[in-house]
Simulated scan of single mutants.
Amino acid sequence: MSSVPASPESAHEHEGDAAEPRLLVTDADVPREPWNQLVAEVEALRIPAFNFGESRVGTDGVRYGVEFKNFSRTLRFDWWYKPPKGWEEFADWVTKAIDLFETSLAASDTGEER
């Protein structure tokens, strides 16, 4: 069995059929009281900061994380796919924060396509 390479013209025939990449940028105000409640909840959590768990390798999945900054300090926790042991309550808190952000974005229709 032999194959014949496609001509350069046929290789470009369908390029115009693909949708152009788009980026939708949206921001929204987060209601102060629910956010303050979430901050109070996370401040009360105890997280084993140096419990990284076993090393994982993966090519897909979701990264989760939180970063707080002020003038002189930065605090960052993040993980891929499943949180390390002992971070389960924190992961639940992150889910609540994501839900608040998503709800706030859904209430806003200020998306701007770029």
Rank of each mutant, 00 (worst) to 15 (best):
T74Q: 09
Q37D: 14
P83N: 03
T59L: 14
I98T: 13
G61C: 01
E88L: 10
L38H: 07
G58K: 01
R46T: 02
A91H: 08
G86F: 12
T95M: 02
G65R: 13
D17K: 07
A28N: 10
G16S: 11
E89S: 15
A28H: 11
W80E: 04
N36C: 13
W35Q: 04
H14D: 12
E89R: 15
P84C: 04
V39R: 05
A107L: 06
V25G: 02
E41I: 02
A11Y: 06
F52M: 09
L23W: 07
L38P: 05
L45Y: 01
K82H: 05
R63S: 15
A40F: 00
D60Q: 14
P5Q: 07
A106F: 00
H12A: 14
W79R: 03
L24E: 11
S55M: 05
T110I: 03
N70H: 11
F71T: 10
Y81K: 06
D78F: 10
P31T: 11
G53Q: 03
Y81G: 03
S55W: 06
E113H: 01
K96T: 02
E54I: 04
F101Y: 03
P48D: 06
G86M: 09
D109E: 00
E89M: 11
S55E: 09
R22S: 15
E67S: 11
S55N: 04
I47Q: 03
K96M: 02
N70L: 04
A49R: 14
G86T: 09
R114A: 07
E41Q: 11
E102R: 14
R76N: 08
Y64F: 06
D92S: 14
L45Q: 03
A106Y: 04
N36F: 04
W80H: 10
K82L: 10
W87C: 05
D27N: 14
D109P: 02
R114E: 08
